[in-house]
Every structure is written in C-alpha cells, then in structure tokens.
Design a binder for these strands. Structure first.
Length: 634
DNA sequence: AATACTCGGATAACATGC
DNA sequence: GCATGTTATCCGAGTATT
C-alpha cells in the first residue's frame, strides 16, 4: 500500500511522508518542490502584497497571504507557497494543495503503521538542478500578407457579400463568486463533518481543515490521546466516500465487439420508436471499414429518397431531444452515430443523417493511424508506462493553459518513478481532459495544429497561415475526413462526369477534401461559410487541387429560396448537399448557453433543412417540368 | 453513486500598428 | 494613447457509463 502525506509541522516545516508497504519513506516533497518552483520563478515578477481575498482564490485569482495562512498554518513561509501557487496557476492551487495535504489520503483505503514528524527542510539554494524553461512554443505563423485575392473564375457578382454578424452572443456575466464561495464552504463543511464522524470534536476538526494537516493531527492526537495510526485510520475511514481502490486505473474493458452488430444496441431503424433517441453503444455507425461488424440494413422514408443526396453532421452527445428534432427536420431519417475512434486515433462521437446508400461502402484508400503511437511514433520515447491511453479524446477548439504542463512537470519531477497512484490518477485526469501528449521527460503538451490536421485527415498545413487560435478553432470544428470519406465512398462510381455540391457550413472544407480523396471530380461547389479565414483556407486548397468551379457565399441566411432556385436553374441542380451545422449550443463543453435547438443561436440549424427542402422541391419541380415537356405531343 | 467525456465562451492580459 | 487583434486564463454541467 502506498501512501503519501504532507505534514505541515507546527514549526513551519513541511515534510512529505511516503509509506510504502509499511516502510516509512520520508521524502521532502514540498521542500524540494517549493525551491524548484522558486528557482523556476526567479524571472517572474516579484510578488507584491495581494489584496485579494479567499473568494478571489476560489475564482482563480491569487490567494491572499491571509488565506494561505489559513490553509497552511501560521508559521509556514508564505512567500514560497505564493510563488509555488503562482507557478502552477491559481486555478489549480486547491488541487495542488490537496495533493500536498492529507486530503489526498482520502484516496487510500488504509494507512501504514506510523508517521515521522519532524524533518529538516532543504535549503532552497543548494537544491535541485531541475530547470523549468519557459515553454514558449510559439509557432511562427505565416501571415497571408501576400495573399492573392483574385477570385479568378469565380462569379460573385450576383451575391451580396455582407457579413451580417452571425453568431453574436449575449454577454452573460455569471457573477458566480457567491456560488464558488458557497461551494468552497460546502466542501469545507464536508471535510469537517468527516472528522466529526470519525469521533473528533468539531472545533478540532475545523482547525484541522482550516489550518493544516499538522495542526490537525497534533490536535487530534492531543484531544483523544490516539496513536498516530489510530488517528490516520479514523481519517481514512471517515473519508471512505471515495471508493477504495478506485484510484487504480483499471485497464478499460474493450467494448469493441468484433462480431457484434453495427450501430451497437440501437433502436430499430423503421422509424417506429416513440421514445427519445438513445445513443448506440458501441457507437459504430451502420458499418465500419475493414470490419467484421455486420452492416445494418435500412429503408429510408419515402420523402428522404433523393435527389439530391444529403449528408448532415453534428455532435452525438447533445441535450436530450435534440437529435429527435434534427431527425424530424430531416425527413425522419435515422441518424448514423459513429465514433471516429474506430477509424482514426482520436475519438469523435458524431451523428450523421444522410440518404446515401450504406451498402458497398469501400474501405479507405489511405488507412489512417488508429493509435497514438501509430500516429506519432516519437512520443513513445517519453510515454510513461502508467499512461495506458491508446487513443486521444475528442479534438476540440480550445487549448489548455501552458501552466498545466508546468504543474505536471513539477509534480512528476519531485515524485518517485513511477509516481504514486494518486499522482498518476491526477495527472491522467488532466491528460485525458486536455488531450495532452508526452513530448519530453515528465513533459506534456497539447497537440500542435499540424498534428490535429493529421489526426482529422486533412493534408498537412491545410490551415497553415492562420493564427494558432484560428487553426485550433477551425480544426476543432471540422469533420473527421476519413470518416466522411468512408460514408461518401458510395458516390465514387455514381458521378463519372463529376459532382455538383452545395456545401453548407463548409468550414475548412472537410467534405470537399473527402470527395477529393475519393477521386470524385467536383464540377462545381457552392460553399456557404461565414468565417473569412475558413473561406480563405478552402479557396487556397481549391486553387491547389481543383479544376472545377468554387462559388463562396458568406452566410446561409443570405441564401434565400429565390437564390437557390436561380442557382438550380443555372447549374441544373445539386447532386449532394453536405454540411454540419454549428454545434455551439449542443456541445457538452459549452457551459453558457447549451439550450439545444431552442435558443436564438440555433436558428442556423434550421437553415439546413430549409435549404435542403428548397433544393429538393425545386429539383423535383424541374424534373416534373422536363418530363412534361418531353411527353408533350409535337 | 462515482466516474468519464465533451466540434465552448467570456474576459483579462498582452501584442501590434498607427 | 488608442484601436484592434491575439493569446492566456479561467470557468461546470448534461449525459452516459460503470
């Protein structure tokens, strides 16, 4: 049994104690950690006296001296702790201190036999050769300064180009300080209660929480004359809410059932279900490339049968009922839910509603890497054995703070190798949450934009030239190209003369890249995309790879029914309407307005069925007209 | 009941150009 | 100094699974 605790001694000394298999191994964790942090911070601004209070800390700002005092005890050198906290980021301060204090002991089912109070702190000056360089990974982004803006061959003259401010969001100040504070108090109360439950006087327990572990332990010892072991056991038992042994990351049961049925334990596809759509598990879609999964058979609702083919995409995990609305708007076609982790090295749970044939999908011409090491073999060098990830989580638009890297490096630098389970668990939670990879010794980092391009199936440097922020944003919002390629592969032999595409919410052109991969000639693509940077990306790629015609429109809302009709008249209809509407208020990461398809922001979604319906009915009308003209007696 | 996962948004801080 | 654009930092909850 491994256990780590930090004792903040009454003398102000801080010691970490590790008990391994009953053998007390005293490590001066904090006395190593603090100096190394301090040295790392030598180039940071000197820390002036703070006027912030404990509420600010809860909000992620700097803790005041007084609040730190409360936390660590009266005699603890505050400056050092302040520096340490600043180094790792205030938002992680609580977690950090939890790791250093006995709170983490709640993870452990039992304790060793004793603890050893008193140890000599290291001198900060002679400690540690660990250096923390500023991880300045600024990618020298190339600007489009010399970008040629001539739209040769593209006819924009009939289209107004006004960007009328799509996606405006209300300012929603969430004045959460009170809530944060209340939450902090609740947590504190819970901790106090656990002490009280263990049979200790509330006053003592309160002191234990607010002043530090050493005070707590000595106070408790003092109050009841318990032995150290008894005290610790009581604490552990009272903190048992955290399940015993849960911290050990069990090897996850593989859910991939090779002989299983496509779309997982899914509802029948006959449209007879009255209940809300339930996501299939495993999320394997109607079929998988190179797989033994039995493809499902489906019959499309009459209304959905083309032309044109349509292909709609959005996040799978939405507020309840959202997919039922989407399905209802798209002729009642059952969504195909597929997690791209079955196709590439990163998870991407998405729902696709389409009227494409699902038989005879061809395997991918380029088989994408399916594991992290296949995608990035060089990461194997630094990948710790206790990080069992084989694939990455969903690639999103946001980049975590670089302080996270620093925090993890700090923790691992002072820990044993391998680190104790609770540190492993903590680090792994961060790695999973922020999709971090190991790029050096104890050093994690977020993926670079070109790595995201690779994982998502785009050509390298597809988004190069944009500021990093825009690259991450555009890539995080895009298709997983290999997945879309697989679904669209059934079109390969259907359009020998090329295909005419209406591309809504084009983004950086995932659908277009997929068609190109399939060798399908795009005679014409009418692309609707509001973001100027995304339009530039597509235009650039188009010029390099395509000979067909690209028409770029600014906003789906400006694509009126009349314009659609005029387009269809000019080019003779579309073969494919493809696109995934914005997921802003569907996506799980959105804390501010995740109101499904109810809110004002969702109006964009409804543009997709409107446009599709107009295309469909106009094409049907033209077909009818043509037939009637043909059959007219001369 | 604990755990895991999620195409994000708001705002302050910082950088740049004038 | 100001306007504008980019980066850094900070924020939970809904849903599903175990």
């Amino acid at each position: 049994m491994t256990m780590t605790t930090i004792l903040i001694l009454q003398t102000g000394m801080m010691a970490a104690m590790m008990l391994v298999g009953g053998q007390p191994i005293l490590i001066i964790l904090v006395m190593r950690l603090i100096p190394c942090l301090t040295s790392a911070l030598s180039n940071l601004d000197a820390l002036g006296p703070s006027t912030l209070d404990v509420n600010d800390w809860a909000k992620g700002k700097a803790p005041s001296s007084s609040s730190l005092e409360e936390y660590v005890g009266m005699d603890y050198p505050k400056e050092m702790l302040l520096k340490a906290v600043k180094a790792i980021g205030y938002s992680h301060a609580n977690e950090f201190l939890d790791l250093l204090t006995f709170k983490t002991l709640g993870n452990y089912p039992s304790m060793g036999n004793c603890f050893t109070p008193g140890c000599t702190p290291h001198d900060a000056a002679d400690d540690d050769d660990i250096e923390f360089e500023n991880l300045n990974d600024d990618d020298d982004a190339i600007d489009f300064a010399n970008w040629s803006d001539d739209d040769d061959g593209i006819d924009f003259k009939n289209w107004d180009d006004d960007d009328n401010g799509a996606g405006e969001t209300e300012v929603n100040s969430n004045g959460s300080s009170d809530e944060d504070f209340t939450q902090a108090m609740l947590e504190k109360d819970e901790n106090i209660k656990s002490f009280v439950d263990a049979g200790f006087p509330e006053v003592r327990a309160n002191m234990a929480i607010t002043r530090g572990a050493d005070d707590a332990l000595f106070a408790l010892l003092d109050s009841k004359n318990f032995s150290a072991r008894e005290v610790m056991n009581k604490i552990f038992n009272s903190l048992k809410r955290r399940k015993e042994g849960r911290f050990m990351e069990e090897s996850k049961k593989k859910r991939m059932r090779c002989g299983g049925e496509a779309q997982g334990n899914w509802l029948p596809l006959n449209g007879s279900d009255d209940e809300l759509i339930v996501l299939p598990n495993p999320m394997v879609g109607f079929s998988l490339p190179n797989s033994m999964v039995q493809p499902v058979k489906r019959s499309l609702p009459e209304q959905a049968i083309g032309p044109p083919f349509f292909y709609y995409e959005n996040v799978a995990q939405t507020p309840k009922g959202s997919w039922d609305i989407i399905k209802g708007e798209l002729y009642g076609v059952e969504p195909e839910f597929l997690d791209s982790k079955y196709i590439c090295a990163t998870a991407r749970k998405r729902g696709y509603i389409h009227n494409l044939p699902i038989e005879n999908r061809s395997s991918l011409c380029l088989d994408p890497p399916k594991t992290i090491f296949e995608a990035f073999p060089h990461y194997r060098k630094w990948w710790p054995s206790w990080d069992s990830r084989k694939q990455l989580n969903c690639l999103t638009t946001c980049v975590p703070s670089s302080r996270l890297t620093e925090l993890i490096e700090c923790l691992l630098s002072v820990a044993e190798n391998p680190p104790p389970p609770h540190v492993q668990k903590y680090v792994m939670a961060l790695c999973r949450r922020y999709n971090l990879v190991w790029v050096g010794k104890n050093k994690v980092a977020h993926l670079e934009p070109h790595e995201m391009e690779y994982l998502l199936g785009f050509p390298r440097d597809h988004t190069r030239g944009l500021a990093r922020k825009w690259r991450y944003k555009s890539l995080g919002n895009s298709f997983q190209v290999d997945t879309v390629t697989y679904h669209l592969s059934v079109l390969r032999n259907m359009f020998p003369d090329g295909i005419k595409v209406l591309s809504l919410f084009t983004g950086i052109g995932g659908g277009e890249v997929a068609l190109h991969r399939l060798g399908i000639h795009m005679r014409i693509v009418v692309s609707v995309e509001i973001s100027e940077v995304n339009k530039r990306i597509l235009r650039s790629w188009w010029k390099q790879t395509q000979t067909g015609k690209l028409i770029q429109l600014p906003d789906v809302r400006t694509l009126t029914d009349d314009k659609i009709k005029s387009f269809i008249e000019k080019i003779g209809g579309f073969d494919l309407v493809i696109g995934g509407s914005p997921c802003n208020n569907l996506a799980g990461r959105n804390r501010f307005h995740r109101n499904g398809l109810e809110g004002e922001h969702s109006s964009l979604f409804y543009q997709y069925p409107r446009i599709l319906n107009t295309v469909k009915s106009e094409m049907a009308r033209m077909k009818h007209l043509a037939i009637s003209l043909c059959c007219k007696p001369v």
